[in-house]
Amino acid sequence: MKIEEKLSLLNYKTDRSYAHITIDPDICATCPDHFCVFACPANCYTLINGKLNFKYEDCVECGTCDIACSHGSVKWTLPKGDNGVIYKYG
C-alpha cells in the first residue's frame, strides 16, 4: 500500500484559517540534506523539481520535522483548538 493510500484512511478537521507549521522557502532553497522529506511519516514534505513543497493538511502532528530540520526553517506549532488529525484508534 502506498503512503498516499494510507493517508487517505485518515480523518482530519482542516483549519483553513491557520497553517500550524510553516517553512521558510529561502532557507529550504539552499538546504543540503532535505531531511524533512525523509523524516516526515505523512509525506507532507516533498521535492518537486528540486524545490521543497510543504502541505500542512496531511500532517499528523507528530513533531518529527521540527527535530529533523537542523537549518531553522520549520516553524512548528500545534493546530488551534481541536483542528487537525482525528484518530479513531491511535
Binding site: 500500500m1 494510507k6 484512511l9 485518515l10 511519516p41 507528530c62
Partner: peptide, 9 residues
C-alpha cells in the same frame, strides 16, 4: 483491511 495510519514520537 488497513483502517488507520498513525505516527507519534
Amino acid at each position: 483491511i488497513p483502517d488507520e495510519y498513525a505516527a507519534h514520537l
